[in-house]
């Protein structure tokens, strides 16, 4: 898939938070095959060195990083966080989150569009955490966003794709834009479904990090993403309301009905 001109072979992007240990995080990244992982920024006390330790672990894996603006509830917070992330991580990529609702962690689409415009004008490559709302999507594209990341369902909810119709409509609206389902995936079949719909990729975090065996789950998601993409490229059968015989009826012997009476 294409992320702002870069070809990324893996269609799975992985979060780095809430793993049982740094070692399991490293092994899960390797098992997932992810080439991009999400990272964040937080306050650090002098001499704490926690940021350095984490950053060293990520760099050892050799993957690209996608900084996020998680926890930002205003345009100003998100923009300042993005600017700080660009300096710390040395990338102009930003997973832009402007949270609008504390219960659902639903994005504030109005703030998101405004922050996207500011950051795009400042040279950022914005990957916008959004909903499946097509009007907001149009505004985001107008503001310079080239990678839309609609939610499957609320962050961490593990509910999968809540609005398949909406996601399908977004895919149809933007056949050439990179679209990634971000948030709410719980099990590999959810990821497979997103890829079957034609989504370019998925971004997931808790589904792997909080699984009983994160490394095995990372492998499972890798397989599901590959299966979903292959299925999409194979042009899946469309659902229908009534049955259609899978065995041909032409030439079937007449062995029942009136002839036997």
């Amino acid at each position: 898939m294409q992320i702002y001109g870069q070809t990324i072979a893996s269609r799975l992007m992985l979060g780095t938070a809430r793993y049982p240990s740094p070692d399991i995080l490293k092994r899960a990244i390797e098992a997932s095959g992810a080439e991009i992982v999400t990272v964040s920024l937080r306050r650090e006390a002098a001499g704490e060195r926690a940021g350095r330790k984490f950053w060293d672990i990520v760099r050892e894996t050799g993957v690209k990083v996608l900084p996020n603006t998680a926890g930002c509830h205003s345009v100003r917070e998100a923009v300042t966080t993005a600017q700080m992330a660009r300096e710390v991580f040395g990338t102009n990529w930003i997973k832009l989150e402007v949270i609008g609702d504390a219960d659902t962690l639903q994005p504030d689409l109005f703030g998101l569009v405004e922050a996207t415009r500011i950051l795009s004008d400042d040279g950022f490559a914005v990957l916008a955490y959004t909903t499946e709302d097509l009007v907001a999507a149009d505004r985001l594209v107008e503001a310079g966003c080239r990678v839309l990341m609609p939610w499957g369902s609320p962050i961490g909810s593990a509910r999968g794709l809540n609005n398949v119709y909406g996601l399908r409509a977004m895919r149809a609206r933007y056949p050439d834009l990179t679209l990634i389902v971000d948030a709410g995936l719980g099990v590999p079949s959810h990821a497979a479904q997103a890829l079957e719909l034609g989504y370019d990729g998925v971004l997931l975090s808790s589904a792997v990090a909080l699984a009983g065996d994160p490394v095995a789950m990372a492998s499972a998601f890798k397989l599901a993403v590959a299966a979903g993409r292959l299925a999409f490229e194979a042009d899946p059968l469309l659902p229908r309301d009534m049955a259609e015989p899978s065995t041909p009826v032409l030439g079937q012997a007449t062995l029942g009905g009136a002839a036997l009476q």
């Binding site: 979060g15 938070a17 964040s40 650090e44 940021g51 808790s206």
Partner: peptide, 27 residues
């Protein structure tokens, strides 16, 4: 935001709010 290259030319005043942030795990 104050870029690293501008810190030495950035004066502080009483009551200023300074934030220092570092890499952390993220989703």
């Amino acid at each position: 935001f104050v870029p690293a290259g501008e810190r030495s030319a950035t004066p502080l005043e009483d009551g200023d709010a300074v934030e220092v942030i570092a890499p952390m795990q993220g989703g």
